[in-house]
Design a protein around this nucleic acid. Structure first.
Lengths: 153, 153
DNA sequence: TTCGATGCAAAAGGTTTGCATGGGT
DNA sequence: ACCCATGCAAACCTTTTGCATCGAA
């Protein structure tokens, strides 16, 4: 759960710089807060938004999501290459952290464990050295079986 | 460059199991062999194929690519989330190795260096331990600047 | 009252599909 | 001759866009 103070900060942010805090934006934010740590598709957000209030269009959902991405509230992850997924950014966690995706139940798990993150940054360093490539952004997905699904099978 | 013996093995493979080695399939394969180590989009393959012979349709390119994917000749990588890219699988190299993508010139570099690969598998191990997640497949992209583009800027 | 945000519907762009025809084997 | 593969065009699906209208500040 994103801390309430952070939530409020985000909400305030959206009404600034000539932007307007509309009910649609608030609805989308509410949904994102309620589904923190999940990885929602646009269609899912739209579905939840219609439950909240019928006055939403899919175009607005897309526009709002782009806006929230620009404002560093939301982060796009490409879990499959058909549709995009989004997750809330947690200010104190490494941005763009790796994800595990269960190929059976489709659950996604964000990898934020410090020791793992540290190891990955060692790999990054090695790539910089070996390939003379300056890494600015990483995008790491692991596919496999989560604990529950592995136990079942 | 994929070894010629491997190329021939692939070509032979395509005429087996009730499949037919058509000129279109051969054209696509020729293009893939010639652009080994690159990461071609479907549109690019289609473009090259039309140069080779005018008798190709985009639908056939898609169908051929799916077929080659199933046959473990080709591997899909999602470099951007608009269109898919493909690269030849090299039997003796780790499948699904990481890629560096230059955000300036769009060049992609496959990471096959053994020491880096070894480090990454240590990370995998750590994830298995910390998250009780069984990793079957990895999909790792690094975005940044390649050597040439970094020198230029 | 102003002007950014919304809703609608159409467009865009990549990919898939159905079906008659072509061409390997 | 058989029947898989191809080409065409239409369908699909997600995402984007243009524009008139709405509504937050």
């Amino acid at each position: 759960m994103l801390p309430v103070t952070t939530q409020q900060k985000v909400i305030r942010l959206l009404g600034q710089n000539g932007h307007r805090l509309t009910s649609q934006k608030q609805t989308v934010l509410k949904i994102l807060f309620e589904h923190d740590r999940s990885h929602l598709t646009v269609e899912e957000i739209y579905g939840y938004a219609k439950e909240e209030s019928s006055r939403v269009s899919i175009a607005t959902i897309y526009k709002t999501i782009s806006f929230l991405e620009q404002e560093n509230v939301l982060h796009k992850i490409r879990i499959d290459n058909k549709r995009n997924c989004y997750e809330l950014i947690h200010p104190n966690e490494p941005e763009g952290h790796p994800h595990c995706i269960c190929t059976k139940c489709c659950k996604t798990i964000g990898i934020v464990d410090e020791s793992v993150i540290r190891m990955l940054s060692v790999c990054e360093q090695a790539i910089k050295v070996h390939y003379h490539f300056q890494i600015n952004l990483q995008d790491i997905l692991y596919y496999g079986l989560c604990e529950e699904c592995r136990k079942k099978s």
